[in-house]
Computed example of a mutant assay.
Amino acid sequence: MTTLLIVDDHPLQRMGFRMLVESQEDLSVLGEAETGTEAVRMAAELAPDVVLMDVRMPGMDGIEATRRIIAAGGRSRVLVLTTFDLDEYAYAALRAGASGFLVKDAQPEELLTGIRVVAAGDAVVAPKLTRRLLDRFADQFPVDGEPEDAKSAERLAVLTEREREVLTAIGRGWNNAEIAGRFHLAESTVKTHVGRILAKIGARDRVQAVIFAYNTGLVSPDGE
């Protein structure tokens, strides 16, 4: 069972999310918060698997709340949801440590998939945001809070040839099934490669792996 904390300052929005989540046998809502301050407190108390986090709220906003929840070092992962399809919000959310960013007009199936992906330790970004977000901000994203430097080169050097190929594919936005088809591998083998890559480069999740691929020049914004 995947547990959630819903954070939004609009009661009707929280109710809608709760109804959707609780329609699924494998998902459960532990609580609701209407401010960033409440979200930080309740995440510490309830330790949900996933926090559905709004961005714009009175007082502490969702970006700062995300930063504090992640900095606390608990088990919760944050999926940011916003009405506003803005690159700056997505950028700020990922910098704060969020594992995903979706707009609220996403289809219900997309939101449910996002919750499950984030709970499983991967990351998700609204498809229409991914390319332009990385094109615009790739050179500003650090891995583990560090700028691209000699340490990044050292991390890249420890990858095997196959791992570099898989990392390049991740950087181009390919999913595991696409990578498996391209390199004639089983998806389980791809998952193993991805796990080893994340560990070797010090990336928290797939989003940071994409960022790392851009920062080290494996992938460029023009897709080459």
Rank of each mutant, 00 (worst) to 15 (best):
T82D: 01
T83G: 12
A153I: 04
E161L: 06
F183D: 03
R196K: 14
D222M: 04
L111M: 15
D122C: 02
D85P: 02
D144G: 12
L52S: 07
E109T: 14
L46A: 12
L5N: 09
D54E: 08
V166W: 01
R136G: 00
Y89I: 14
D54Y: 11
A65K: 06
D149G: 15
D85V: 00
A33S: 11
K191H: 13
L102I: 13
D205Y: 09
S152K: 03
G16Q: 07
G74D: 07
D85N: 10
N215C: 06
T189P: 06
E32L: 13
A72L: 09
R75Q: 13
A120G: 14
A169Q: 11
G74N: 05
V158N: 01
D205H: 15
R155A: 08
R56A: 10
R77S: 09
A203V: 02
F17E: 10
D8F: 08
A126E: 14
M53S: 04
D135G: 12
E163Q: 15
R116D: 08
D9Y: 05
A153W: 10
G73R: 00
G121Q: 07
L81G: 01
L159N: 04
Q107C: 02
M60W: 00
G202V: 05
G145L: 01
D87M: 13
K104Q: 07
R204D: 12
D49K: 07
T130F: 03
R14W: 12
L111F: 10
F84A: 09
F183P: 03
R41L: 10
V166S: 03
A92P: 05
A169V: 03
A177C: 00
A157N: 03
L111C: 11
D139T: 14
Y214E: 04
F84M: 12
P142G: 15
E22H: 01
E165T: 06
R18M: 04
F137A: 01
E165H: 02
L156I: 03
A120D: 14
L167N: 00
R196D: 13
V143H: 00
V117F: 06
E161S: 04
N176C: 13
V190S: 06
A138R: 01
P147K: 15
F183W: 10
V166I: 15
V124N: 05
K104R: 14
P48E: 07
A180D: 07
